[in-house]
Simulated scan of single mutants.
Amino acid sequence: VANNIGDNRIQFSVTLPATKNAFTEEEIQIKSISSKAVNTEVENEIASKQDKTKLLIVEDNTDIKDFIVSLFKDSFVIITANNGQEGIDKTLEKLPDIVISDIMMPVKDGIELCHEIKTNKLTSHIPVVLLTAKVGEENEIKGYKTGADAYITKPFSSEKLKLIVSQLIETRKKLEAYYSKTFNINPELAITSTESDFLKDLQKVLEEHITDTSFTSEKFSKLMLMSRTQLHRKLNAIVGMSTSEFIRSQRLKLAKKLLQESDSSISEIAYQVGFNTPSYFNKCFKEVYGTTPKEYITKRD
């Protein structure tokens, strides 16, 4: 509605209906509010926690457990257990980055817990620090025989414990960085025999199936005799990749070798290593190596 309110001045009044019934279905546009935007703060908090290293503390003495928690709570996501069996269960459920465990505990002791962790291929990569009031070389040797990465007698120095944990975490990160950078699976670098066996199985499956275009995460996990979730969590822990990312990295490593040594065309190599399309192969190759396959060949020549 237009109203004359003075010299050369007109006022326009626009009335819009406020009810849904005033519009047809074609005129209504429903825009959903992004849950991502609504939950940004929550998601950031979750991401922050996920970025932190997970530490499992297994100790039946409440005072000692609380003391150890106080040493690491600012830098780690803390998980606790009150005995060896509970510690084993939480290790399998949470897959922590490192475990600190007392030896003398009810239900199952720390020696049994360490043995279970180190002989299970899902958890064999996890460093274990054993704490004990028992002194003497014999007890220490027994601890190391189970696969323990460190053995500390009580009472212990808080700085010593923090330093050992830091060094063990750093060693795992270096191994992860090595795998991520080179894409090489080297069983000789494994810390335990179970871990070595796992990497050998991994290597064997890859050698036999990596060039098969139907070699998916699901097929990979079946051949490794693990669930998809278990294999994903294991690979993420030791190489920092999901199962599909790991398969892709191994195909690209093989493709790079073929580009260096083979006279096959880029498209032929893409299909040979298991990619469904040359275009997707080009995209993935450039993302990883910073150059297209064609540019890579040119530099080689």
Results as ranks from 00 to 15, higher is better:
K286H: 02
D51E: 14
I117Q: 08
T229N: 15
A177D: 10
F220K: 03
F215L: 05
P17N: 13
L122N: 08
K181H: 06
T171E: 04
F220D: 02
E208Q: 08
K256Q: 14
L16G: 00
Y151I: 00
I88D: 05
T216R: 10
N120G: 02
I79E: 12
I191S: 00
N83M: 01
G87Y: 09
E195R: 07
M226F: 03
D301E: 15
V273N: 11
Q50P: 01
E176P: 04
T243H: 07
N186C: 01
Y144I: 07
E295R: 08
G87E: 09
S262R: 00
E176C: 11
R300S: 14
N184T: 10
K257P: 00
T213H: 14
N184D: 13
A22C: 07
G147N: 05
G274C: 10
V129R: 06
R228K: 15
L161M: 05
E86S: 08
N21A: 09
K234S: 04
K181T: 07
S262I: 04
Y271D: 05
S166Y: 09
M241N: 03
S267Q: 15
K294E: 06
H232L: 02
K257G: 01
Q230M: 05
T19V: 13
K200E: 11
K160H: 12
S35N: 14
L225M: 02
G290F: 06
T15W: 11
T277R: 15
L92W: 09
Q260H: 11
Y178A: 04
A177C: 06
T19L: 12
D109E: 10
T291F: 06
E59M: 02
I5N: 10
M105D: 12
L56I: 07
E295Y: 00
F67V: 03
S70M: 02
